[in-house]
């Protein structure tokens, strides 16, 4: 059994939490602005307005 002290946990939460946040943010921005994703976003955006009311099957 190893002991985790309160200070260690707090320090971990305070430092790595921030890095996690920044890393996560960068990934999301990359995904949103990735050039090849543009086409599928535009499709998704407009496809819900189709008057179609049947499953594709």
């Amino acid at each position: 059994m190893f002991e985790i002290s309160h200070e260690t946990l707090v320090a971990f939460a305070k430092s790595w939490g921030l890095f996690y946040l920044m890393g996560f943010f960068l990934c999301v921005v990359a995904y949103a602005f990735w050039p090849s994703n543009r086409k599928r976003f535009d499709r998704a955006k407009t496809s819900i307005l189709d008057r179609e009311d049947k499953p594709w099957k």
Binding site: L21, F24, F25, V28, V29, Y31, A32, F33, F41, D42, A44, K45, T46, I48, L49
Partner: peptide, 27 residues
Amino acid sequence: YYYLPVRAQRPIFSYRLSILSFWGITF
């Protein structure tokens, strides 16, 4: 994000923004 564009018959203003705000809210 579904009923507003459907009712207005206009696509959502920015799809990218909806993705960014989704992860922002979740996080």
